[in-house]
Design a binder for these strands. Structure first.
Lengths: 117, 117
DNA sequence: CCCGTATACATAGAAACATTATGTATAGAA
DNA sequence: TTCTATACATAATGTTTCTATGTATACGGG
């Protein structure tokens, strides 16, 4: 019984994209492939989320892009992290860490034995 | 330097609410207080998110509600987990766990040293 | 040679949920 | 009596994801 992909939680795509390009420039389709492979298909980034997200991040100055050619001779738009993007990645990772810790406290907590109605 | 509350990621409020009432019935405001206390104010659930979420969960059959009176003599709507709600909580916790693990793989991964443009 | 699949980009429309702002009302303290 | 905390509720707004659709090319199998 293979587990199906989970829908993305709003906001978590950006940090994954930034991480994906943090090792060097990558094109959009490559980002999507890398995320799917890295998460063993837990996340399958839809194009309708991916491409607008890349545009947003570029608009915010976290990414820069230019057209290039893949190893297989296809045209693709390559994205690179800017300095602001690198800082943004660190910041978003910290935010995610805080989020996970807080959720962890909630889910591990003993919910109060209600005073009832 | 106190850390400010983080905005909620879409979808994570439901599981926190279900967890909050898992020990016994609780009213909306109490849920919000409990989440804030448990997370040391990392999450501050806004009313505009809280009350619609409670309605949604009731509509889905995960919660039941009835009016009651607090210890201090105020009227409040008390929410209780249904059987479906208990199953839903387990399911959402599993989903969250998968999500965190997948994100963790992404954030720890070595992003490929780009072939450049 | 043609056709299916994978690659690669893009956008429009719909849906979902959080935030902001606002409103009502009461208990209790200052 | 005025301010704060408690308790509920909704409308308007904004952001992001999902679904669906479209274009186009490379490549391999039949």
């Amino acid at each position: 019984m293979t587990e199906r992909p989970v829908p993305l939680l709003r906001g978590t795509l950006d940090v994954m994209i930034l991480k994906a390009v943090s090792g060097g420039s990558m094109h959009g389709y490559g980002v999507s492939r890398w995320i799917a492979e890295t998460t063993d298909d837990t996340f399958e980034v839809q194009e309708g989320a991916l491409y607008p997200a890349l545009r947003r991040l570029e608009q915010k100055g976290l990414l820069e892009s230019e057209w290039g050619v893949t190893e297989t001779g296809r045209e693709a738009r390559y994205y690179t992290l800017t300095e602001a993007g690198r800082a943004g990645l660190r910041s978003e990772v910290r935010m995610w860490t805080r989020y996970v810790e807080a959720m962890s406290r909630v889910l591990r907590a003993m919910a109060p034995a209600g005073g009832g109605v």
